[in-house]
Each structure stands twice: as C-alpha cells, then as structure tokens.
C-alpha cells in the first residue's frame, strides 16, 4: 500500500521578479515499510521535495496524498497535526533545543499532541524513544554534553516519540563522520525492519546503498528511480571494527 503518493508536484520560489522552479513535476509513490533515499546534485530540489513531504511547505501545483489523505488541501492547523502525528522529521543539523535535556527535547512533540497525554505518559514514552536509540543513560544530559552522533540519535528519538507512520530525514548524516553515519543508518535499518517507512536525502552514494530504493533528482525532475539490494549497516560496522583492528595491529608492528 502506498503511504506517499505525489502527482505532478511543482514548487516555484518567487523572490521579487525572479522565479525559481525548484520542482517541475514530480510523480512518486512510496509503499509502506520501504527504506528509500533521494540523491541528486546540490540545488536539484531534494530539500524542497523533503519539505513538501514533511508538510513543512506546500507545493505550488500537483497533489500529495499522505496515508490516504490529500494533504495539499489542508490548512495550517491540520498540517501541524499531520507533522505532529504522522511524520517524524530528522534534520542535518539536529535542531535540538539548547540548555534542555535530551529527555525534554524528546518530550517536545508530545507537548503539542492533541492526544492530551498525562505527564507520566509523556515521560515514559520519551524515555522509551531514547531507549530505542540506545541513549537512555544520557536522558539528563544537555545537547552540549553529547557528541554529534548522540545528538542526532536524540533527534531521531524525538522524531519517533509520536509513533509516526513515516520518518523523513534530510541529510541526517551530513554533519557526521563515516563511522557515526553508519551507526545512524544502522538505527534506521532497525526501525525499518520493525515496519517504519523511511525516506532519506543524501548526496553520498555510499549512504544511499543502505536503502532499498534510490530516487535521483536533477533540476527538479526525477531522472532515475531504481530498486537495489541494500547493504546491512551491521555488517559494515563489523567489517569496520575488523579493519580498525588490522590497522591498529599494523601500527603496532611498524
């Protein structure tokens, strides 16, 4: 079943008299439970597409069905509810609130939920989300006391805490080194195995190969869309450890 269905999506930015066509007619279907990635050169419209998928922005033309609803007709309030309930968003630069503990950062979306959860439940759910990303022991730490990878894991926990149907990530590994990137991808793959639909922007083909579908954009149009057999991040991480051990041995013998 398709969770995302885009038909002839266009997006034109107007700055004074200049108009930039960032998206020029995107048709895209994403089925539930898929881990897909978007690639493309800088300026090809990846983020623009992602923002529309995330209901942060609205298309200039075309229709967008999310989980069976035509969200391109929704007003601001309804869009806020969709962002809160149906979508989890992960950003390149984490966007955690400073001087706020990991736990409180993760609780944030629940505060804006219309479900009217009890404080205890908010707390428990946030704690559970932190457990999923393996950071339960850092719940009381502020972002400035966490590494980049850990901060991104807190951000993922925040995206997961409302139990969304789809996780959107715009270059989630863009600010991280390759080893830490692998750890984040590993979390994504784990979540995906449990049935979460994930859609991720990246411009590194190394990272895209961990997903099962790669969509490539150029100048606001999809130029290729192919299914691949994903590499497992767990294996890559294990190899990495072996590699490190060998390198360490070499250093010692030298």
């Amino acid at each position: 079943m398709a969770i995302v269905e885009l038909k002839q999506i266009t997006r034109t930015y107007r700055t004074g008299s200049v108009a930039v066509d960032a998206l020029r007619g995107i048709d895209l279907m994403i089925n539930e439970g898929v881990f897909a990635s978007i690639m493309g050169a800088s300026g090809s419209g990846k983020s623009t597409l992602m923002n529309i998928l995330g209901c942060l922005d609205q298309p200039t033309g075309g229709s967008y069905h999310l989980d069976g609803e035509d969200v391109s007709t929704f007003n601001k309030n309804k869009l806020a509810n969709i962002r809160n309930r149906t979508i989890g968003f992960v950003f390149q630069s984490f966007h955690l609130l400073p001087r706020t503990t990991a736990l409180e950062n993760v609780e944030l979306p629940l505060l804006y939920s219309d479900d009217n959860l009890s404080w205890k439940e908010i707390h428990n759910r946030a704690m559970h989300a932190l457990e999923i990303v393996g950071l339960a022991d850092r719940a009381k730490h502020n972002p400035n006391e966490l590494s980049g990878g850990q901060q991104q894991r807190v951000a993922i926990a925040r995206a997961l805490v409302t139990k969304p149907k789809i996780l959107l990530a715009d270059e989630p590994t863009g600010n991280l080194d390759s080893r830490t990137s692998l750890e984040i991808i590993d979390i994504f793959q784990e979540l995906n195995k449990q049935g979460l639909t994930i859609f991720m922007v990246t411009h590194e083909s190394d990272i895209a190969r961990f997903s099962e579908r790669i969509v490539t954009l150029r100048d606001g149009l999809i130029i290729s869309d192919k299914k691949v057999v994903p590499i497992q991040a767990k294996t890559a991480l294990a190899n990495w450890k072996e590699q490190e051990a060998i390198e360490l041995e070499n250093e010692v013998t030298l």
Binding site: L56, F89, P109, S113
Partner: peptide, 16 residues
C-alpha cells in the same frame, strides 16, 4: 527563530 521553527516543525500551531 530556530527554536520556534523546530516547535512548528514538530507540530506546534501558531496559537501555541
């Protein structure tokens, strides 16, 4: 501004 942006992104409404 970024804080507000984030709040809006995770589902805060204008009145909130």
């Amino acid at each position: 501004t970024r804080e507000v942006g984030l709040r809006l992104a995770v589902g805060a409404k204008s009145p909130d």
